[in-house]
């Protein structure tokens, strides 16, 4: 398995990288972790004229808290996300999700930005970002722009990124109050893409009413999916077994999985319901409710 020949550029500034994108247009591909792109190139499914390696650009790899917002640089490796103490504090969900992405070696290379920018509904971070209400920062010739996660995923391998833009940062609001979050996916074996995956984040007020709910679904829809009706079913009231069942039901109805080697459409819908239920319970537990 050997890729077709290409030009290789490793710019050391964002400006140079963007200039290269402008020069090559559709014929260029950004190389960050490379663990989705290089296999596709080896299979010759992807044959870019130019690879723009952004790994040498400083300032794209960080995990920090600023003004109530958590900022993760796009080049931050999955392994760094997995082991970050700052993330563990607010977002144990990142421990859940990274452990289930591929394997340790791949997580040493794979980046959070790449996982999102690839636009693959089978990737795990999109659902997590939907649940956490993240904002994607894209940098282009005219500087930065903020894209709400709900406006980021367009279609099969399609995102809101323009051909001359680079995903540079992910911003996540740090929730207040009693908040818990959790992610799980069913997989045929460790490191597999999800049969179905569910991310949940819940915030409760003093009296136990649910004030914020985020639920994202992995690999059960052509694009990463927010389970909006499920969120609504939980909001503004205490969470009960009945509302959990309702949320689970809605998510299984609103997704659109396809039958494949991982299971039938019916199975995947059922698994979405089971996982929504389980992840709500786990998020509640982490919020200190149980």
């Amino acid at each position: 398995m050997i890729a077709q020949s290409f030009n290789y550029e490793a710019p050391d500034t964002l400006a140079k990288a963007i200039a290269l994108l402008q020069k090559y247009g559709d014929e260029a591909k950004i190389l960050s972790g490379g663990h989705s792109l290089i296999p596709m190139m080896k299979l010759r499914f992807a044959t870019p004229e130019c690879l723009i390696d952004i790994n040498d650009i400083p300032g794209l790899s960080h995990i920090k808290e600023e003004g109530g917002v958590l900022k993760i640089g796009a080049l931050t490796r999955e392994a760094e996300v997995e082991h970050s103490d700052l993330l563990k504090k607010h977002f144990p969900i990142f421990g859940d999700v990274t452990k289930l992405i591929a394997d340790p070696q791949v997580r040493n290379r794979g980046t959070l930005g790449g996982n999102l920018a690839h636009g693959d509904a089978a990737n795990d971070h999109p659902a997590v970002m939907l649940a956490l209400n993240a904002t994607v920062i894209a940098t282009g010739p005219d500087g930065e722009r903020a894209i709400p996660i709900d406006e980021f995923f367009f279609g099969f391998y399609m995102t809101a990124l323009q051909p001359d833009e680079i995903l540079t940062e992910i911003q996540i609001p740090i929730p207040e109050g009693n908040t818990g979050n959790a992610y799980h996916k069913l997989e045929r074996k460790v490191g597999d893409y999800a049969t179905a995956g569910v991310a949940v984040q819940l915030t409760l007020d003093q009296s136990g009413n649910c004030t914020a709910a985020g639920i994202g679904l992995t690999n059960v829809n052509p694009t990463p999916l927010r389970a909006a009706r499920s969120e609504q079913a939980l909001l503004g009231k205490p969470i009960t077994e009945a509302s959990i069942a309702e949320a689970a039901q809605y998510a299984s109805e609103d997704c659109s999985p396809s039958s494949d080697l991982r299971g039938s459409e019916e199975y995947k819908r059922a698994m979405v319901a089971v996982l929504v239920k389980r992840m709500i319970h786990k998020a509640l537990e982490r919020a200190g409710v149980k």
Partner: peptide, 28 residues
């Protein structure tokens, strides 16, 4: 040929990586 087996694992700056999914130029 799919980064699945790990037989090609090496350390790159101390991190274990699959050398079948990294370009030689990236190790510069």
């Amino acid at each position: 040929d799919t980064s699945s087996c790990g037989a090609c694992t090496i350390l790159l700056d101390g991190k274990s990586v699959k050398s079948c999914t990294i370009l030689a130029v990236q190790a510069n």
